[in-house]
C-alpha cells in the first residue's frame, strides 16, 4: 500500500516545479504551462485526500471537477490574450509585454 505522504510529496514537487516555471520563464505560453502543472498538483492532492480520508463522500470530486473547468477556462482566455498580443506586437515574451495600450 502506498502511504498518503508519498502522493503529497509528489504533488508538492510538481507544484514547486510549476511555480518555478511560472516565475522564471519568459515565454507567456510557457508560463501558462507552469500554471497547468500547478493545477495538476492540486488535483493529485484532492484525489489522494478523497481516496485516503473521505472515500465515502463526493466533495473531493466536485473540487476536482471545478479545478478541471477552471484550468480549461484559464487556458482558453490566456491563450486568446497571448494570440491577440502576438497579432498586435509580434511577440509572445512576457518581458516585452509591458504596455496596456499601443
Amino acid at each position: 500500500m502506498i502511504p498518503l505522504s508519498w502522493y503529497l510529496i509528489f504533488s508538492a514537487l510538481l507544484f514547486s516545479i510549476g511555480l518555478f516555471g511560472v516565475l522564471a520563464r519568459k515565454n507567456a505560453i510557457a508560463i501558462l504551462m507552469g500554471v497547468e502543472l500547478m493545477l495538476n498538483a492540486v488535483n493529485i492532492n484532492l484525489v489522494a485526500f478523497w481516496r485516503y480520508i473521505v472515500p465515502a463522500t463526493t466533495e473531493g470530486w466536485m473540487f476536482v471537477a471545478s479545478v478541471f473547468v477552471v484550468a480549461a477556462a484559464e487556458v482558453a482566455v490566456g491563450l486568446a490574450l497571448v494570440y491577440s498580443i502576438y497579432r498586435g506586437r509580434r511577440t509572445s515574451s512576457a518581458d516585452e509585454i509591458d504596455l496596456l495600450k499601443w
Binding site: A12, L13, F15, S16, L23, K26
Partner: peptide, 23 residues
C-alpha cells in the same frame, strides 16, 4: 531565445522555499 528572465535565481529560491514549507 534565453528561456529564463532575470529573476531566475529568485524564482528558484521561491520554489525551493514553497517546497520546504510543504514538506
Amino acid at each position: 531565445p534565453e528561456p529564463f528572465n532575470d529573476n531566475m535565481r529568485l524564482a528558484f529560491l521561491a520554489a525551493l522555499l514553497v517546497f520546504g514549507g510543504l514538506a
